Simulated scan of single mutants.
Amino acid sequence: YARDAFEGLRLMDALIGIKRGVPGAALPELKQRRVKATTTVVDERPPEQPTRSDVATDNPVPTPPFRGSRVVKGIPLKDYASWLDESALFKGQWGLKAARGTGPTYEELVESEGRPRLRGLLERLQTDNLLEAAVVHGYFPCVSKGDDLIILGDDGSERTRFTFPRQSRGRYLCLADFFRPEESGETDVVALQVVTVGSRIGEETAKLFEADSYRDYLELHGLSVQLAEALAEYWHARVRAELGLAGSDPTGLDGMLRTEYQGCRYSLGYPACPDLEDRAKIAALLEPERIGVQLSEEFQLHPEQSTDAIVVHHPEASYFNAGGRS
């Protein structure tokens, strides 16, 4: 475990040194575990737990611009670069932080190191043609039943279904609650998307790693991951606009990153939809191989610089932990 990206670089240097037999090369001593391992007990749903939360069922259902899926390729960098979360890139990916005591502040480091380096890398990505931004997205009729979201075919029959966890307390929220219940007789709509910035940038980061250029690798890899997320945010905004939900969007990126809008985007693997095997169902519906994205046996997206998501139009939809309170 490394506390930040640059400590990670030092660990990698030590590992390579050991592998090559460099005299004196060694890893830090293992630290004693502070928290004792415990066995997690999964309780069955208590008899009093409701099968549906108090989420409203009378919200308007938007009309999608089409049914099924569509592919969009060749999205210019300028279209989604403005959605780049610089804080996540500089702090989370690049480990940029002020030293203790005297020295430049984080804000000063951003101006002197972060943004100049970012501009140079973005120019290189365009000059070397390392980005292949593409999206496959779609709108599908659906209903809910208990904890299940049921995707319907054109004839109204069940096409596939997703089963989501429900909170054991609080509002007892479940992702399925944000869609019309089957017994209502109404049909709802769910949006799905898969985005990628392509495989070329991953191939370039692999070359840097093989050449032991760990700092360059770290910066380019971190940027590639955040660009995929920026593309996902950009297309998420496009989906909300197509569903007529963008009227109340905040004007700045900060507000967007704080989800101050209607139409939440849920990525698989997160608390509300933790089952990665559901990626196979999204893949069956969207066929992301059309944009060069494959699903591994471990349900990971390849290239790594790709993301998938479920977009929920319900005005009460928010991020919540299915294991606890909202």
Rank of each mutant, 00 (worst) to 15 (best):
K97L: 14
S112R: 14
A134K: 08
F90V: 00
G114T: 08
G24Q: 10
L122R: 09
L89T: 00
L30T: 12
R70P: 11
V72N: 05
T51I: 12
A98F: 01
L89Y: 01
T127Q: 13
E86A: 11
R52K: 07
T51K: 14
T105L: 05
K31S: 15
P23E: 14
A25K: 09
S87N: 12
H137Q: 11
C142P: 05
P28S: 14
R70L: 12
V42M: 13
S112T: 15
G68Q: 09
K145M: 09
V71C: 06
E29C: 08
V143R: 12
K36R: 15
C142A: 13
A134D: 12
V55H: 10
R115N: 10
L27Q: 08
P47D: 15
V71F: 03
V41S: 06
I75S: 03
D128H: 09
R67H: 11
T105Y: 02
V55I: 15
H137V: 00
P23V: 05
P62Y: 08
P47A: 15
S112V: 10
G24Y: 05
W83N: 06
L27G: 12
S112Q: 14
L109T: 01
P60T: 06
W94C: 04
E132Q: 07
L122T: 06
P116D: 10
S69F: 03
D54N: 11
A98Q: 10
T63P: 03
N129I: 04
T127G: 08
Y106I: 05
A88P: 00
K36S: 15
T127N: 09
E29M: 11
A25T: 07
R124T: 12
E48T: 12
P23Y: 02
T40C: 04
P65D: 04
E86M: 05
D128S: 11
L125F: 13
L130M: 02
D58I: 02
P141N: 09
A81I: 10
L30Y: 11
Q32V: 12
P104I: 07
R45M: 07
D85M: 04
L96K: 03
L131V: 02
D128K: 10
Q126H: 04
F140T: 02
A133L: 03
V71G: 03
T51F: 11
E113T: 01
R70K: 13
P60H: 01
L118P: 02
P64N: 07
